[in-house]
């Protein structure tokens, strides 16, 4: 599966030469650096969009027109959590409840809004499997590419202070963001190749060994560079991409975005994303 273009919105403004540098300044930054939405989405449409929908639709628009053989897949752990919380507040207060909040509480809102705003009527899917949401979306994209489709695939997550408090995650380095990719099975013009999407069974600290065993068992060359991160709070993965973008369920998408920037310096990169105590998402990116 080949990546042709990417677009990302995160708390890291723009990386370029800063990739791999000291990202300590980013730590604790909860909100993404939002672009000027007026360039992408007219006010009359934007007004009803939650944070996640704005980020997702902007990424989609930044990546250009979707052809008729295009599909849209989104991975999101919590969907539009801000609006869901607003709705729960309304219920708790026993006041009239907002239909707009309810509509956006459905996890496939971002994918649906991308379809409406890009006028795309093709395959449209949303995966919501905690910290493995993005890899699930990518897996489906891989199947679609095999089936001859081009895919707009991405990960989106919102930061909600109320929800963070509710789950007792206030002390964690949480953030939000959206990273999207135009993928297909066409090699010409690609910027990177996704050669494998799977998961690694391993406990914290055992990632490198597990990866080595995995690649040996599969008879593939072990990637030169391992890009580690975590999509849920818990055992620290050490220095990794989640230090740059923050912790949120679909941040493996940011890991892939970063890998696309870095692939010129390595033969292949393994994005290892810890999403629970005994599993990591594994995405291997290679030069196209």
């Amino acid at each position: 599966m080949y990546i042709h273009a990417t677009h990302s919105i995160s708390r890291a403004q723009s990386l370029g030469d800063k990739v791999g540098g000291n990202n300590a300044a980013l730590k604790g930054e909860k909100l993404a650096a939002y672009p000027d939405y007026t360039t992408y989405i007219p006010a009359s449409i934007r007004r009803r969009m939650s944070v996640g929908v704005r980020m997702g639709v902007t990424c989609a628009k930044a990546l250009g027109e979707l052809g008729s053989a295009h599909s849209v897949i989104v991975g999101t752990g919590m969907g539009c959590i801000i609006e869901s919380v607003n709705f729960m507040n309304d219920i708790k207060a026993a006041s009239a409840v907002s239909p707009t909040s309810f509509i956006q509480s459905v996890h496939n809102t971002v994918a649906g809004q991308i379809a409406i705003n890009m006028q795309n009527t093709g395959y449209n899917m949303t995966f919501s499997h905690g910290g493995f949401s993005f890899e699930s979306a990518l897996k489906d994209a891989q199947i679609l590419c095999q089936e001859g489709q081009a895919v707009l695939v991405g990960g989106v997550e919102e930061y909600s202070e109320t929800y963070a408090e509710f789950e007792g995650m206030n002390n964690e380095d949480l953030s939000e963001g959206a990273s999207f990719f135009n993928v297909s099975s066409r090699e010409a013009g690609a910027i990177a190749k996704v050669s494998l999407i799977d998961h690694l069974s391993c406990t914290p600290g055992g990632e490198e060994t597990a990866l080595l065993n995995y690649t040996q068992a599969k008879g593939i060359v072990a990637p030169q560079h391992i890009s580690k991160g975590q999509s849920v709070p818990g055992a620290s993965m050490g220095d990794g991409y989640s230090d740059i973008c923050g912790i949120y369920m679909s941040n493996a998408a940011f890991g892939l975005y970063l890998a696309c920037q870095q692939i010129k310096d390595h033969n292949s990169i393994a994005i290892v994303n810890r999403f629970n105590d005994h599993n990591c998402g594994l995405t291997i990116v290679a030069k196209p």
């Binding site: 969907g79 459905v106 996890h107 496939n108 994918a111 449209n124 899917m125 949303t126 995966f127 919501s128 499997h129 905690g130 493995f132 699930s136 897996k139 998961h199 069974s201 629970n276």
Partner: peptide
């Protein structure tokens, strides 16, 4: 996750959410 653990299914586990 609960069901996968209960039935010992592990090769690929995911959740779709499209209303």
């Amino acid at each position: 996750d609960s069901l996968a653990e209960d039935l010992d299914i592990s090769d690929f586990v995911t959740t779709i959410s499209t209303a």
